[in-house]
Write a protein that binds this DNA or RNA. Structure first.
Lengths: 192, 192, 192, 192
DNA sequence: AATGAATGAGGGTTCATTCAT
DNA sequence: AATGAATGAACCCTCATTCAT
């Protein structure tokens, strides 16, 4: 409970002013308890950053996994996957922005834990694409699929990072639609 | 001259430890002059960040523009463009990393100046693609082209940001080759 | 019972890290009860220091008194006295070290109580020497005896304080032997 | 200059309230400059303690060495030596008190440096006694002399540490006189 | 009687910025 | 023009003490 308050408070502050400009006192206050109590839950300020990153990843992953459960994978499934993922990235754009911009402030030993989660997300789409190709009996090498998956993940993040540019030209729906078309055209031409 | 020393010094320090962990003293020292003199050239520490971002953008753009000068645009030209751009992003990956991770630390009023430069880079590839479609007499709507250009730019940055994952699986050449194939397959199927 | 646990716990912690570096939480834990309960027995952290000093003095005194019970005092008795005292100071050297180094942290009003006990210890040896001189019908002024007694006490403490130097050169037995010889030669020449 | 101000300020504060209860801010203020400037001269608070201990030792040693320069050593010389040393310890009693009570707070790596100086002081009196015995053609083993020297040093410190007791009974002159008599009686009886 | 969560004053330390020289 | 000593606000973190349960 306290932990969640703290993480929520921290995220909202990090969104506003970034990790470095946020003080532990502010986080304590935003969390609704004293600085002393804050330090019952963490050892150093960096711990908060880790908890925040970890929590955001978990939230993103949980939402994606809830949205994507597929057996038979068609074009439609892929579109649904993209749509769901981009929607999540839109909902959590502040959180995602925070996370990626502060990753480098994570203590060296915590980084791998977080990066592992990033790869898990890539793996979700890798799996989706693999099933699609299997169903269509298209033979595509793993590296290619892996790269497609990376691209998809990055395109989701990009919607958050580059909103200053993209929002002016596209709604989320349009963005999703275009990206889907570009993707599907690419992978469908693979089979020929 | 002094300015360049300062920017160079700052970049090298930012690469190593990030903007926030770098002190003005260190920047002065790395620049080869005193802290007092440093403050002849800037008003606040943030100014240095701005100068650094600005300079990196200029360097990237300059190199790209030097690499890409085309009249008649073929598949080959596009591949050359991608290759050159990715190469530049590989060469300057530390710089690029620094820049994007510290953008949010820029004072609000300086951000637009920098973002404008980002859009100029998008425009370069937008132009390239437009010419390609014109030459092939394919009719593609501007929004689609714009998005393709964004994707290309982001894929270049991605090579820097996600090197921890991508480097394990691809060389720069392979990465370029795959991305090119995915791109060209997508845009070529547009014409049909 | 609780009190003793607390004092024992505190002493062992003070030995290890000194009074100031030991936290009340640690003392509570080492004592086997909660911080809340700890504060049932004390008002401030300083109280613990007082209890500790007091307890150490009592222990030292008790042991000395148990070791020294004399009617007829000869050279031999004095040697036994020295030996016993030095042995005790050797056994309790950590405790004694703690006590003397933290004395100045005692609240002003508690100091006299503790210093009184120090004087009681001096008095023990004063008494011993007095009896010796009485038995030998040597006339020695009280101040001189008092000073001899102080010197003895300090030589015992010195074995603890200066162990970093003395241990390298002497065993406890050698140290005792030499000090005894120096003492006895001094006081014996008094009679002439 | 600054350094000396700082050390002087620190000593006076340590005398008053001990090392742990003195804040760096107070030291800065007492030194007549700001906390920022203080940290130009030291890296951590412990450094101040080291500088203080070092400085006190140097001062004590310098004074002793200035007072004791002997060729031909007689009883008189020894008395002069004792008198000078005890006088110095009386003058610097606060400093000496500070030093010994805070030694344990010194970082592990600095302790040996300071202890070495303590041994140098012992060596001074060791030398004095050796010369005395040489001159009198008395054969005394080194360990015995070493211990005598230690005793002398400790008796000097004792005058500072136990002033609460000794001052009530002795003036410095009386204390010196008694201690000298006890010493000389002891060592003179060695020759027989 | 016993707990331990909660507090927040206060500690050591850093560093952007200024300004006398 | 150039310096770097000096500043002090502000940071992160600790821990003695309290008090509701």
């Amino acid at each position: 409970m306290r932990r969640e308050q703290m993480i929520k408070g921290a995220i909202s502050l990090f969104k506003e002013k970034g990790y470095h400009r946020t003080t532990t006192r502010e986080i304590a206050k935003a969390s609704g308890f004293s600085i002393g109590t804050l330090y019952e839950y963490i050892r150093t300020k960096e711990d908060i950053l880790y908890l925040v990153c970890d929590q955001i990843y978990d939230e993103v992953q949980e939402k994606i996994k809830k949205a994507l459960h597929f057996r038979h994978v068609t074009k439609e499934t892929i579109k649904e996957g993209l749509t769901a993922y981009f929607k999540i990235m839109d909902d959590l754009q502040d959180e995602v922005l925070v996370m990626y911009q502060e990753l480098k402030s994570l203590p060296r030993e915590m980084l791998p834990v977080v990066l592992k989660k990033e790869l898990e997300m890539v793996a979700i789409f890798e799996d989706l694409l693999k099933r699609y190709f299997d169903q269509n009996q298209t033979n595509v090498c793993d590296e290619q699929i892996h790269l497609y998956a990376h691209n998809i993940i990055v395109q989701g993040q990009m919607w958050g990072f580059r909103r200053w540019a993209l929002r002016k030209q596209y709604t989320l729906e349009q963005y999703t639609e275009w990206q889907f078309q570009q993707l599907i055209r690419g992978i469908d031409s693979l089979g020929k």
